[in-house]
Computed example of a mutant assay.
Amino acid sequence: AIDLLAKGPDAAPEIGEAFLKSRTLAIWRKALLAGPASSIDATLETLKQDDGLEACVSVAWMPASALAASPRRFVRLIGLNSSRWPRGIAEDRLIPDHIIPTAVLDPLPVSLADRRDFDTILATTGGEIVLSRARRDSDGRLLGRSPLLAGHREEIYLRRNAVPVHAFSETDRLMARPQEFATDLQAVSAQSCWRDWRRPEITAHDGLIRADHPLVLAILGRTQSASSLRRLLRNPLSFVWVYAFGWREPQSSAEPLVLDALDVGDLVHMVLDRALRDLEAAVGLASADANTIEAAVARAAQAVAADWESERPLPPGVIWARTLDDARLMAGRALSYGDDHLPSTRSYGEVPFGGSEPKSEAQLPWDPGAPVTIPDAGFNIAGYIDRL
């Protein structure tokens, strides 16, 4: 299958025969006849398909210009709002009005054509015609009436919560039958949540659970990190959501334009850790001068960039180069700034404790698997120390 797909657009007929069948294969063949294989995605978006229904006895959706040319017995016109229909006359983008006047360039302006189509629809509709407009747009702003409605004064306001004569869907049916909807489990849950929202006491919808809940005891007994302890102290409900329910913010599939703060921190930490290991393996950070630190940071940044590019999505080249420069600058300042180093001192980076797995094979100052317990609290903690 991979070898066949690797042939690309030139093998589109062969690929379709191998992977598709029945109606999807027929659509694929029709798209290849309508346009080139290299742009088949665009062809499929605009390709019209026969739905197998007879247009004369089915509900048809069409623009006003098509309706004026093919009258129907029952018609509903929607979107009769000011500035929406009839459409306004706009100056041609390629030939402006001062070169060729619009009246000469376009003897039948779109506004005049819309008015003519409207009059034609009113005159040719045999049974019933409904004129419809929206009161507000998608942002909630009030919309005006179309000037075409000037001779039609009476309006019937259709409310959203009106009981439908014919149910369009299951939701429509339940809204038309309040007694049946009141017994639905989702409705009962929503109503209880609505009532609890206005009650002053703490309820289950606020996160109240029974004492010694086994799930809460399990997540409290786990080895904690700095972030989980901070979340537990500041937002206990969020602590339950994240560590008991496993809720996480979905990651975007789009490639990043810039690295976020967390990724920048990871990048700087990786550069620091590798540079620190190189320095300790050579002269040691306590004995290293500025040039030695700068060279070690440059080598570390180059190595980390190669690993990063093979494992994670990258921003555009110019931004990525600037990000690496910033990481080198921050890592260099972090290693050269601070108190004077005492003789025979050793420096470590990304030091694990409490059972965390080491991020490298560098020498460690202690056993990373030894448990670390907060006194008088009963919490075991684990994590990494950036620099020791």
Rank of each mutant, 00 (worst) to 15 (best):
F19C: 12
P313V: 05
T223K: 15
E361S: 12
A6K: 13
L143K: 09
R133V: 01
A162K: 00
T24M: 11
S22L: 06
L324E: 04
D196G: 09
L388C: 08
A64Q: 12
H269K: 10
E311W: 03
A11D: 10
P236H: 10
L131V: 09
A55L: 12
S70M: 11
W194C: 09
L47T: 07
S227H: 04
P71H: 10
A162D: 15
A12W: 04
E155G: 02
A334I: 03
R159Y: 08
V163W: 00
W308G: 01
I121Q: 06
A190D: 13
V372H: 05
L32A: 05
L267W: 03
A301C: 12
Q363F: 02
P368H: 03
A286L: 03
A301W: 07
A31K: 07
L33V: 12
P352L: 04
V264D: 06
T292L: 05
R116G: 02
Y384P: 11
V372I: 14
A69T: 05
A90E: 14
P71Q: 11
D325H: 08
D117R: 01
A150G: 13
R210H: 03
N235C: 07
A176S: 15
L158V: 15
L148S: 12
T373L: 13
D266Y: 11
A218V: 00
G52Y: 03
D260M: 04
G349T: 02
P147N: 04
G35F: 03
L44V: 13
S356M: 14
P96H: 12
W308S: 03
C193V: 06
V240K: 05
S310Y: 01
D260H: 05
L215N: 06
S138L: 09
D273E: 14
Q191F: 14
T171Q: 07
A288R: 02
A69H: 11
R230H: 10
L285N: 01
R234M: 10
G338W: 05
A113N: 07
E155D: 05
T183E: 14
R141W: 05
G378V: 08
A64H: 04
A26T: 12
V75N: 06
D339F: 00
F19G: 03
V297G: 08
R76C: 15
S111V: 02
E255R: 14
Q363T: 14
D212F: 10
D289Y: 00
A306N: 06
P178V: 10
G52E: 05
D307W: 00
R116K: 13
I27F: 07
I100V: 15
P368S: 05
D339R: 09
D50L: 12
H98W: 12
